[in-house]
């Protein structure tokens, strides 16, 4: 198989996708900064309202909130472009507050993604192959149960069974200050299990649906009726149709996991960005939350772009045929 050279059309399609992604990111920054600012009330008044208007005005001036909205937005956006995430209401740079904990949070998420890719593919394809039969009913029902339940409820259930009931694993992720969670791997087991169940719920259901759809395709039926061994049909006709979909759902689930991690971290008192964020929300520290929203939003847009590129690379008709 010779891979054809990228044509001008493909380069143009890629450029178009990039422009759309940048445009969406700009829109997102407007929603996250201007939209939030236009909400009735503001974080300072909501939390210091009783302290009197003089004190509120003083704090607002201290945070630079008395300048016009457009100026503040442009300053903030220009900062983001330079990689400056702004300054928290506490006076510390946001980048410093987040980076200290981000590594701890990424670790369970990364392990989860590594485990999710093979297991969701195996579960989803198995359920799809046995569609309508008892094995599929059981798998599908299990996935539906998992996807319907908030991850902290799931994590709470795990604590009940494995920490409170069986006493196999710690209920609280005690990581010594400045230590690395990898030094005490047992604390990672339950958080990763909770995240993995959540990810399997999403990815497994979509991969199952893609497999079931691929099996109904006429060319698959043709191969089967011609006596091609099931294993070969699966490898040559079904998996090539399922993988682009799976790739896409893996990427978006991976970004979504960082959001879910905030809740799971609180269940196990795991020292990640969750704690920083919760404090920021409770004290009305908008710059911290806005910075994280932009980081995750940008990550999601990059993930979608990669998913698009991956789909193009994996689907021959998109790669070669004029569109």
């Amino acid at each position: 198989m010779r891979r054809p050279a990228p044509t001008a059309r493909q380069v143009r399609a890629l450029a178009n996708r990039l422009i759309v992604a940048v445009f969406l990111l700009v829109l997102l920054s407007l929603v996250v900064y201007v939209g939030v600012d236009l909400l009735p009330g503001d974080p300072v008044t909501a939390r210091l309202g009783q302290a009197g208007p003089a004190r509120v005005a003083e704090v607002r001036a201290g945070l630079g909130l008395d300048r016009p909205l457009a100026t503040r937005y442009l300053d903030w956006a220009a900062g983001l472009l330079r990689g400056d995430l702004g300054t928290s209401a506490t006076g510390r740079p946001v980048a410093e507050m987040l980076s200290a904990r981000l590594g701890n949070s990424m670790l369970p998420a990364a392990i989860t993604v590594v485990l999710m890719v093979p297991s969701s593919l195996a579960l989803g394809v198995t359920a799809g192959l046995f569609r309508g039969r008892p094995a599929d009913r059981i798998l599908s029902t299990a996935l539906l149960l998992v996807v319907s339940v908030p991850e902290f409820v799931l994590a709470g259930g795990l604590v009940l069974v494995f920490a409170a009931g069986l006493r196999w694993l710690p209920a609280v992720s005690l990581v010594p200050a400045g230590g690395n969670p990898l030094d005490t791997p047992a604390v990672l087991v339950l958080p990763v299990t909770a995240l993995l169940l959540l990810a399997l719920g999403y990815a497994g259901r979509i991969i199952r649906a893609a497999t079931a759809a691929a099996l109904r395709a006429p060319h698959v039926e043709f191969l089967r009726l011609n006596g091609i061994p099931p294993r070969a049909v699966l490898a040559r006709a079904v998996l090539p149709a399922v993988l682009p979909v799976a790739f896409q759902v893996w990427l978006t689930t991976a970004v979504g996991l960082v959001g879910g991690a905030v809740l799971v971290e609180k269940v196990f008192a795991y020292p990640g960005i969750g704690e920083v964020l919760i404090t920021a929300v409770q004290t009305g520290d908008l710059p911290v939350v806005q910075a994280l929203a932009m980081i995750l939003g940008a990550a999601m847009l990059v993930a979608l772009l990669l998913a698009d590129l991956g789909t193009r690379a994996m689907v021959p008709s998109l790669r070669t045929a004029p569109r």
Binding site: F23, L24, L25, L27, L28, V31, V32, V36, D37, L39, P40, G41, D42, P43, A46, R47, V255, G256, V258, G259, G260, V262, L263, L277, A280, V281, G284, D285, L286, V289, Q290, L292, A293, L296, G297, M300, L301, L304
Partner: peptide, 23 residues
């Protein structure tokens, strides 16, 4: 498109953002 832009945020992050500005 504006809705697409918001869809890039995990729902929990939208919640955190909204609660910071509007408890």
């Amino acid at each position: 498109r504006p809705l697409d832009a918001v869809a890039a945020l995990p729902p929990l992050v939208v919640l955190l953002l909204a609660l910071t500005a509007l408890p």
